[in-house]
Every structure is written in C-alpha cells, then in structure tokens.
Amino acid sequence: DTINITLPDGKTLTLTVTPEFTVKELAEEIARRLGLSPEDIKDTHNGKTLDPSLTLAEYGITPGSTITLEIK
C-alpha cells in the first residue's frame, strides 16, 4: 500500500507502508530518503501534527492518503 508525502517544495514522494507503521517509522523512512534527520521532520494530516507513537491506522491514514511534510 502506498501513501503520498507532500514535500515543502510541492513535490510528492510516494512511500510503501502498512497501516501498522508508526508515525515515527514513517518519519525515519522519509528522513532516510531525503537525507535528513528524523527529528527534523514534522508530519501533518488534515491540519493536525501527528504523534510519533501512534500508527497510521490510528489516524485513519489509508492507501492513497496524503501527508504533508514540514521541515523543523
């Protein structure tokens, strides 16, 4: 299953994830792909900052969802 990550420059990154991924694991994968530190990444969905300890499923993030990435 894939989700879309909207980057600060407007580009989109597509990642393969499972509903059990935590937001922290997602940030780590994004950081790895972009050459950043996971601590520099802030993920938001529907205007809410995502708690790193919760899973994508707990936020109702499903395949095809879009998450907005902010760099701290």
Results as ranks from 00 to 15, higher is better:
21 F>A: 07
32 R>L: 11
72 K>A: 13
64 G>Y: 03
59 Y>V: 15
35 G>K: 05
52 P>F: 14
64 G>R: 00
69 L>M: 08
4 N>M: 10
41 I>A: 02
9 D>S: 12
1 D>A: 15
42 K>E: 11
30 I>N: 00
30 I>H: 00
10 G>W: 02
21 F>R: 05
20 E>Q: 12
43 D>C: 15
53 S>P: 02
18 T>E: 05
48 K>D: 13
67 I>T: 02
56 L>W: 02
10 G>T: 02
63 P>G: 09
37 S>K: 13
50 L>M: 08
9 D>G: 13
38 P>W: 14
39 E>M: 15
60 G>Y: 02
22 T>P: 01
33 R>M: 12
11 K>D: 10
49 T>S: 07
14 T>A: 09
31 A>M: 06
50 L>S: 03
21 F>E: 07
47 G>K: 02
70 E>P: 05
48 K>C: 15
39 E>R: 09
26 L>G: 00
48 K>V: 15
22 T>E: 00
31 A>E: 05
51 D>N: 06
57 A>E: 09
48 K>F: 14
69 L>T: 04
1 D>I: 15
24 K>F: 08
16 T>Y: 12
69 L>E: 01
13 L>M: 12
26 L>T: 01
51 D>G: 02
28 E>W: 07
55 T>P: 06
23 V>G: 03
37 S>D: 12
32 R>M: 09
69 L>P: 02
34 L>M: 07
57 A>C: 06
55 T>F: 02
58 E>Y: 11
10 G>C: 08
46 N>E: 09
28 E>I: 09
18 T>G: 09
16 T>D: 08
45 H>S: 13
45 H>K: 06
64 G>P: 02
18 T>K: 08
9 D>L: 04
13 L>D: 02
49 T>L: 14
32 R>H: 10
65 S>E: 05
47 G>R: 01
5 I>S: 01
34 L>S: 05
33 R>D: 03
31 A>F: 09
58 E>S: 08
59 Y>P: 00
17 V>G: 01
17 V>A: 03
10 G>K: 04
71 I>T: 06
56 L>G: 01
54 L>M: 14
5 I>F: 05
48 K>G: 12
44 T>Q: 11
19 P>M: 08
49 T>F: 14
25 E>A: 08
70 E>D: 09
71 I>W: 10
